[in-house]
Simulated assay, not measured.
Amino acid sequence: MVNLIIEAGLSTATLQEELAAMAGAAAESGVLIVGGDTKVVEHGKADGLYISTAGVGVVEAQPLSAESVSIGDKVILSGAIGDHGITVLLARGELDLAADIKSDSRSVWPMVKALIDACPNALRWMRDPTRGGVSASLNELAGDCGHSILLEEESLPVDRAVRGACEVLGLDVLHVANEGQFLAIVESGSADIALAALKSTPGGSRACIIGEVVESKKSPRLLVRTPYGASRVVDMLVGDQLPRIC
């Protein structure tokens, strides 16, 4: 289902372009758009066009849950992080900063399907690291499964421009929102099979293993091992995310 909130005065060409892009994305993912609604609001009230969606599906693979995550399981990331959040922040023009960065917004279904097909019984948990980024998703997982998560900082796929923007703005890239990536926890013995399946799928060339589930010495938490061998704790983001995108 798709709902369109259209600002009066929006050009027909812009609306047609968005609908064509939507149809293409749905076809690529094997999704049917079966209905929706439109609402026209006064000029200046909707920033051009707002789009909201809702979907219904059927769970065909084994259910995934934090309770099935065990010590030694590997953390897999589908691709580079931070692109979307930094793109939105720069596009708002509130900062005197420019960089050649594009949002990672895309369908992750082709990669998710490849992962499910390759190791259906070894897949424990999945999440898209949107608001709050990788940090929020993995901190929540640590609390739910009762184990800590240890990431290798050198294994994190971050583009140079994104890393530079984060350094200038004082942001931790693990807190920055993503739109076209996902995290997966996979049983250790099947991690290489899962990674190979992702890398052989269009858009999955930068998939990588970024860490593992480890025993908690105190309370479950997210840890990152630096290139120098020390570990730092990455807590949930306190206060509003920058940029606030949802």
Rank of each mutant, 00 (worst) to 15 (best):
D83K: 02
P129E: 10
L138N: 07
P243A: 13
D240P: 04
R127L: 05
I6W: 08
P129N: 12
V186Q: 06
V173A: 07
L15F: 05
E215S: 13
A20E: 11
A114F: 05
V158F: 03
G143M: 01
G57Q: 02
Y50C: 05
G35H: 06
A54S: 14
V238C: 13
G79M: 01
N121D: 15
G170N: 10
I5M: 08
I81P: 06
S70K: 12
G143I: 03
A191M: 09
D47V: 05
K113D: 10
E187C: 12
I245W: 09
K39L: 14
I76G: 02
L171I: 07
A54W: 10
P202H: 04
V233T: 14
D159E: 13
D172T: 08
S105E: 03
V233E: 15
A191T: 11
L138I: 05
D235G: 15
V34M: 12
G55C: 12
V69D: 05
V186C: 11
P220E: 08
T226L: 14
I116N: 09
I33D: 02
V40P: 00
D235Y: 10
D159K: 02
R124Q: 15
A91I: 03
G239I: 04
V134L: 11
I209L: 15
I71S: 11
M236Y: 09
P227T: 06
L237V: 07
S105L: 11
G72D: 01
P110W: 01
P227W: 07
E7N: 00
G9L: 02
P202M: 09
D144W: 01
A61W: 01
L89G: 01
A207L: 10
D172V: 03
G44L: 06
G57N: 02
L19E: 11
V108E: 00
A177G: 09
V238S: 15
L19A: 12
C145M: 12
G24E: 09
S11E: 11
T201H: 00
P202V: 09
W125C: 07
M236F: 12
S205E: 14
K199L: 14
G85K: 01
R221W: 08
T12S: 14
G203E: 06
E67V: 13
S190M: 14
I33L: 15
S65N: 12
S103L: 04
D37R: 15
D128N: 15
A122G: 14
A20R: 11
K113C: 07
S205T: 07
E215Q: 13
V75K: 04
A230R: 13
E154W: 05
L183F: 09
L64D: 10
L138P: 07
G146F: 08
G203H: 02
L15Q: 04
S137H: 08
S155T: 07
L95N: 02
E94D: 13
S105D: 06
L19I: 14
D172F: 03
G146Y: 01
A99Q: 05
L15E: 02
E167P: 03
L19D: 00
T226Q: 15
P63A: 12
L222G: 03
D240H: 11
R92V: 09
L174H: 06
G82M: 02
I51T: 13
I101A: 08
E152K: 15
D240K: 13
L183M: 10
